[in-house]
């Protein structure tokens, strides 16, 4: 179990999921049990989520991610969005902290 999400930490897609890009959408397909359920088994990301997801390569810290996003999305609440997104996906085991 990892601690609270912070901008100093590094995150990457979990090995428990498969992320697919289809027609511009990112579809998260659970690989291991307990992530999806039998009826709504997939996840999809909103526009903000897609932008953050593409930068989460397991090497950049979330601060670096927010800096990159700031260049593209001026004036937006980038820090809040990145932390919110990563928290939500980490809670669902879709993202994991890279030590």
């Amino acid at each position: 179990m990892t601690g609270p999400v912070s901008l100093e930490k590094i995150y990457a897609p979990s090995d428990d999921i498969v992320a697919r890009e289809i027609e511009g959408e990112i579809i998260i397909v659970p690989l291991t049990a307990g992530i999806g359920n039998i009826d709504d088994e997939l996840f999809t990301l909103n526009e903000t989520g897609r932008a953050v997801w593409k930068l989460l390569d397991g090497k950049k810290s979330l601060r670096q991610v927010t800096e990159e996003l700031s260049e593209a999305y001026e004036g937006a609440e980038i820090d809040q969005d990145v932390l919110g997104f990563v928290s939500e996906l980490a809670k669902r085991r879709i993202l994991v902290e890279v030590s």
């Binding site: 997939l42 999809t44 990301l45 969005d81 939500e88 669902r92």
Partner: peptide
């Protein structure tokens, strides 16, 4: 704000313009 939405693959396939080949 929800960044991620839970969906069924059937729903994904029905999205206009998103149908896979």
């Amino acid at each position: 704000m929800g960044y991620v939405e839970r969906i069924s693959s059937d729903k994904f396939e029905r999205w206009p313009g998103k149908a896979s080949m």
